[in-house]
Design a protein around this nucleic acid. Sequence first.
DNA 1: CCGAATCCTAGATGATACTG
DNA 2: CAGTATCATCTAGGATTCGG
Lengths: 141, 141
Amino acid sequence: MEVTVAEDQLIDLRKKLEIFFDGNEKHHEFCPVRDIMDRFGDKWSLLAILNLGNSGKIRFNELKGKIEGISQRMLTVTLRSLERDGLITRTIYAEVPPRVEYELTQLGKGLLQQIMELAQWASNSMDEIMKARMDYDSKLQ
Amino acid sequence: MEVTVAEDQLIDLRKKLEIFFDGNEKHHEFCPVRDIMDRFGDKWSLLAILNLGNSGKIRFNELKGKIEGISQRMLTVTLRSLERDGLITRTIYAEVPPRVEYELTQLGKGLLQQIMELAQWASNSMDEIMKARMDYDSKLQ
DNA sequence: CCGAATCCTAGATGATACTG
DNA sequence: CAGTATCATCTAGGATTCGG
């Protein structure tokens, strides 16, 4: 499969890039792209968002069951971080034993959509990437 | 700013999700999304791709100059990894002193486009995220 | 049930020195 | 110029234990 990018499309890309990245050594202070990448560049945030999008309201341990291999600690840490950024809500019910439900906010759903776009690209490009890796590795003897 | 997601849109999202993520405990072996995330979840890949997209063909040290704070070692590591995945090409010129030029492949340009979409969302959502963070932090006393 | 606190390790990154 | 090699550091994440 070939991805084609026309020259004028690239020029447009470059124009957009200047919004976020500035080669002229100015305002490196803050980059929203970097910030978002850090947000789900970690090990679990992405999976948490995907599962929350798939489930609507969901309880802590129910979510834990859906995310293969995550520890209790990391689920807590991940959810706190997502909550802090306003991507999910956390609702505590005053019951015994306690019940806590998580749900994507509108903002979180927006991010989920972006992730889905990326996922689509990833899925479409996977074969090409895997082939490139095999080619590369085979050339190292 | 409000992001609105219609119910049918969400249903569509869920359908897409099932391509990559399966709550029913099957084929966890390989997730292309996870793989792509790992690709630029590291510290420098994203910046490298952005700068390569901005520059066309570019030499090692020239690129190093554009990426604020990157070490020689990490630029090498990052570029090797991108090359392995077929996202960039590496061209060596048999000269003294040596000259090596890097450039995005079509595949790499495709990824760049995806990143730009994400960047656009990130940029648009930044204010809302920052506000959520301040609200959250202020409630911890 | 949900989570906080603690301790610990692997892997990612940085600093530095050396080379074709 | 464009790397490699080595060593030091730093942090995300896992295991475990305790508590409301």
